[in-house]
């Protein structure tokens, strides 16, 4: 690990003014410290911002506000989250291990880097780690790679579970930028596709701090499910995951939400399928048709064709679970 300076900040504005080019903010550290050990992240300094950020879940008018420093384990057991946004708790508990959830922060979860094996293997080319060096996964091991929204520059996927639920529920991200200006970024615009800059995972302005995440009040706290398929039963990143939620009027679907992890460079909303589900009867045939719409959209790589079938099954299962959960 490269030597670095360490300081603690007690105010967002102080942390922002102390932030220099090669300095990074530290919250939970579960991803950053690991990346520093592997010399993938090589900051000259760290500013510990755990004390400057809120660790509370608060009811706002029309939304629930999750402080940036709310630990994953606290988020998963928060009474307000369980009552109003239980899908979020489900998704959080599907990710990482209890130890990591005790450390990891809400904002840090949004900013975690991909788990593409080539990103972590510093002896191989990777456009995300070293822009312009090439994409090893494009002609390499693609089990964990994307099936939609990728390009020749990068086929990596976003690894978060929490973000899939936040995408499905139409959350927004509250940010304070370097000039102390408050910004609100809709969740769908927060993460980005690789484009020509796969080294950037999101649209968070340079040197800005995420202060909280807002989830608008919604009718999706009764019929919801999070299905995560992976190489072992627990403590592994998703091959594919599905967050599903239905607002039902009897057996008719008033509105549906469908999002996936493990499929793209960002949390992916299946809007065509959501549109299809609207107004339909909630039954196996409808769910199968919705899964088929999604299957038509994806374009697996030569090495991960299995993900298409797996995703169809996960979508049907998740929608079915919405009725029984």
């Amino acid at each position: 690990m490269k030597p670095f300076s360490f300081s603690k900040s007690d105010k967002v504005s102080k942390a922002l003014s102390a932030k220099k080019e090669a300095v990074q903010f530290l919250a939970g550290g579960t991803n950053l410290v690991d990346l520093m050990k592997k010399n993938i992240a090589v900051p000259d300094g760290l500013i510990d911002i755990t004390a400057v950020l809120s660790d509370k879940v608060e009811a706002q008018s029309g939304s629930t506000r999750i402080g940036a420093m709310v630990r994953n384990s606290a988020l998963a057991t928060d009474p307000q989250i369980l009552a109003k946004n239980p899908l979020v708790a489900k998704a959080v508990l599907a990710g990482a291990s209890p130890q990591i959830r005790n450390m990891a922060s809400t904002a840090g979860n949004l900013l975690q880097r991909t788990r593409c094996p080539y990103f972590y293997e510093t002896s191989t080319p990777c456009n995300k780690r070293k822009p312009g060096s090439g994409c090893s996964a494009l002609h390499g091991e693609q089990r964990m790679s994307a099936i939609i929204g990728y390009n020749d520059a990068c086929v990596a996927v976003h690894p978060s579970d929490l973000c899939i639920a936040l995408a499905a529920l139409g959350a927004s991200v509250n940010v304070t930028d370097k000039g102390n200006k408050q910004l609100v970024i809709p969740f769908k615009d927060f993460h980005k596709l690789p484009e020509s800059t796969p080294d950037l995972d999101n649209h968070l302005p340079k040197d800005a701090i995420i202060t909280s995440v807002d989830i608008p009040d919604n009718p999706f706290n009764k019929h919801f499910a999070y299905v995560k398929l992976r190489d072992r039963d627990s403590y592994a990143f998703a091959l594919v995951s599905v967050a599903a939620a239905l607002d039902l009027d009897g057996t008719r679907i008033k509105e549906a939400r469908l999002a996936s992890g493990g499929v793209a460079h960002k949390p992916w909303r299946w809007q065509k399928a959501e549109q299809y589900l609207k107004g339909k009867e909630a039954n196996a045939a409808t769910f199968h048709a919705a899964a088929a719409i999604v299957a038509d959209e994806v374009k697996p790589l030569p090495g991960n064709g299995f993900k298409k079938v797996m995703l169809m099954g996960a979508i049907e299962t998740a929608l079915q679970h919405c009725l029984t959960a």
Binding site: F6, L26, G29, T30, V33, D34, L46, D48, T50, S73, P98, Q99, I100, N102, M103
Partner: peptide, 12 residues
């Protein structure tokens, strides 16, 4: 609370 000491910087 249980945490991973390998990912916790002593300075924190």
């Amino acid at each position: 609370e249980r945490v991973l000491s390998c990912l916790t910087l002593a300075a924190t």
